[in-house]
C-alpha cells in the first residue's frame, strides 16, 4: 500500500521540498508579492499543461502549443488594433478578441487532431510541423519584429492580468477554474474514461464502442482551447507578441504533466499532479532568481534534471507493481 501512496503523493512531497528550499534560500520568497507572482506565472504553463494532460492521457502529444500561443497572441493583437477604428467600446473589442482567440485555438486543435486521426500521421510529426508553421507565421505577422497592442486597449485589458480578486490575481483564478473543470472532465465523465481507455489501448477502446478518432481529436481541441485561455491572460501582461513569444512552452507543459505523474505513453493521467508540476517548475525558476548559489541561466538544466528524476521515480513505482 505505501508504494501506491508514494506514487500519488510524490509530486506533492516534491512541491513541499522545493517550497522549503525556497524559504531557506531567501526571506523575500515568502513575501505575498512573490507568492502571488509565482502563482500568476505558473498559470500560463499550468493551463496549457491541463490541456496537455488530456492529450497525453489519450496517448498523443502536442508540440505545437508554444508556437500556437504566440500565433494566437499575434492574431488577437492584430484584431484588436484593427477593430479600434470601427468599434468604440474597448470592452466589446476585447470580448471579440477573446472569442476569436478561443475559436482559433479550437480550430488549431481540430487541425492537429484530424491530421493525426484521419490522415494517420504520428502526433509527434504533425505537431512538430504545425509548431514550425505557427512560429513562422507569427514572425511573418510581426515582420521579424514585435507586434504591439494599441495603448488605449492595453490599458483596459491589462486589468485581466494585474487585477486582483480576494487577494489573488485573476490568472490564478482562471488557472484554478480550468483545473477544476479539467479534473471533473477527466475523472468524472464518460469522455475522461474514454481518454484513459484510448491511451491504454486503441483496439480495446474500439471494441468497447468508443469512437477513438473523435476522442483523440477532442483532446487536441481541448488543448487548443487551453492554449487560447492561457494566451488571453498572457497578452495583457506584455501587450505585445513576437517570434520569441511562448518559446519552449511545449516542453515546460509536457514537463509539468510528466512531473505530475501522468504516463507519457498514455492511459493514465492526473490533473492535480499537472497543477503541482507547473507550480514546481515555476518555483524552481523563482528560487534561482532569488539566490546567487546557482546561476539563473541554469534554470533549464535544473528543470531537466527534475523531469528525468520524476520519470525515473515513476518507472520504479511501475516496476514494483
Amino acid at each position: 500500500m505505501p508504494k501506491l501512496d508514494l506514487k500519488t503523493a510524490g509530486p506533492f512531497i516534491a512541491l513541499v521540498v522545493v517550497f522549503i528550499i525556497g524559504v531557506l534560500v531567501n526571506d523575500a520568497f515568502l513575501s505575498s508579492g512573490n507568492l502571488s507572482n509565482i502563482l500568476a506565472r505558473s498559470s500560463f504553463i499550468g493551463i496549457v499543461a491541463i490541456g496537455a494532460t488530456f492529450v497525453i492521457t489519450a496517448g498523443g502529444i502536442d508540440l505545437s502549443v508554444g508556437s500556437m500561443a504566440a500565433f494566437i497572441s499575434g492574431c488577437m493583437i492584430l484584431l484588436m488594433n484593427a477593430l479600434m477604428d470601427s468599434i468604440d467600446s474597448m470592452l466589446v473589442i476585447i470580448i471579440l478578441a477573446v472569442i476569436a482567440s478561443l475559436g482559433i485555438g479550437a480550430l488549431a486543435g481540430l487541425i492537429n487532431g484530424l491530421l493525426t486521426t484521419k490522415a494517420k500521421i504520428e502526433a509527434f510529426i504533425v505537431t512538430l510541423g504545425t509548431m514550425g508553421i505557427y512560429r513562422s507565421l507569427i514572425t511573418y505577422m510581426a515582420d521579424g519584429g514585435t507586434l504591439s497592442l494599441n495603448f488605449t486597449i492595453g490599458d483596459v485589458y491589462s486589468e485581466v492580468y494585474y487585477g486582483v480578486f480576494l487577494g489573488l490575481p485573476y490568472p490564478v483564478w482562471v488557472f484554478l477554474g480550468v483545473s477544476v473543470i479539467g479534473y471533473v472532465l477527466l475523472n468524472m465523465t464518460v469522455f475522461g474514461r474514454h481518454c484513459f481507455a484510448v491511451g491504454s489501448s486503441e483496439s480495446v477502446a474500439r471494441y468497447s464502442a468508443i469512437n477513438v478518432d473523435r476522442v483523440k481529436t477532442a483532446t487536441y481541441m481541448l488543448q487548443g482551447v487551453c492554449v487560447a485561455i492561457a494566451t488571453i491572460i498572457y497578452v495583457p501582461r506584455l501587450g505585445s507578441a513576437s517570434g520569441q513569444t511562448g518559446i519552449l512552452w511545449e516542453l515546460e507543459a509536457i514537463a509539468a504533466v510528466i512531473i505530475g505523474g501522468t504516463v507519457l505513453k498514455g492511459g493514465y493521467g492526473r490533473i492535480w499532479g499537472t497543477v503541482v508540476g507547473a507550480l514546481i517548475l515555476t518555483l524552481i525558476g523563482n528560487i534561482l532568481n532569488l539566490t546567487d548559489a546557482v546561476s539563473n541561466y541554469l534554470n533549464g538544466a535544473v528543470q531537466g534534471i527534475i523531469v528525468i528524476v520524476a520519470v525515473y521515480l515513476q518507472r520504479g513505482a511501475w516496476r514494483r507493481d
Binding site: V190, F196, A197, V204, R206, G267
Partner: peptide, 25 residues
C-alpha cells in the same frame, strides 16, 4: 488485445462498454 485493458481495474473494464447507461453529465 481487444477485450480488456489488462493494466486497468476490474470496474473500469466492466463498465467501459456500458457507460452510457449510468451517466448523464
Amino acid at each position: 488485445g481487444n477485450g480488456l485493458l489488462l493494466e486497468k481495474g476490474l470496474v473500469f473494464n466492466f463498465s467501459l462498454f456500458s457507460l452510457h447507461k449510468i451517466s448523464a453529465l
